[in-house]
Amino acid sequence: MDALWRSFENLAASFGDTVYLALVKDDAYQYLWRGLGNSLKLTLLAAVIGVILGLLLAIAKLQDVDNLTGNRFLVGLRRLLAGFANGYISVVRGTPAVVQLLVLYFIIYSQILKNIPGFDKIPDLVIAGIAFGINSGAYVAEIIRAGIMAVDRGQTEAGRSLGLSAGSTMLFIVIPQAVKNVLPALGNEFIVLLKETSVAGYIGIADLTKGAQTIGSTIYNFTVPLLCAAYVYFLMTTVLSSGIGVLERRLHKSD
């Protein structure tokens, strides 16, 4: 019992020193600060790619409806698009994000793209952003598809009956309402995405988690840097979810 107590005392006494070493000495906090910058850049890039990709995939997947009629070539094309989207979503959701990141970086980028002039100078951060975007796109696609399907069929019929094309109806009538439906789930996806970027260190990107690890291995103590990193992640996700909340309330002004 005494031994346990003494170890607590030692821990407390050395805590101040550790904080000093972990954050202050030699501006060590810069690892976390710059790491945070990289994490946010990654998240933003991945979110933009994910939403665009997700929207396209959702629309592609929605092409496969029961009573497809008309031009045989077009019907085939729509089925093909839906099939592609389905396959994409299955594969991406069925494999871990880390593995996808490693495949994209070490196989597709390092062994193939890098040999093509013009592609050889893509920053690692961009590669990672694309990898996370590709991953997130699959989840966003399902979120958006559910959101679009939740919009009453009558809305589409009303739009078409006015003479608007299928595209215009989708763009001006269905999607704005779908956005409102999907916002909570989409916010959740962004939070997941921000946290998921913590594996970017696998390909040598100095993100927030990697920054904490760097400090830890310099001062031989991981407690303070890791807890700091965790706290910063928590802060960011909290800001993100309250931001989504504000947006949601604003979009609900028509209710």
Partner: peptide, 21 residues
């Protein structure tokens, strides 16, 4: 079809107004 539909207005049982506008 879209041009043809412009000439034919429709009023629905469930109104189908656009709630976000």
């Amino acid at each position: 079809l879209d041009q043809l539909r412009q000439k034919v207005g429709m009023v629905f049982q469930q109104f189908n107004l656009f709630p976000h506008m």
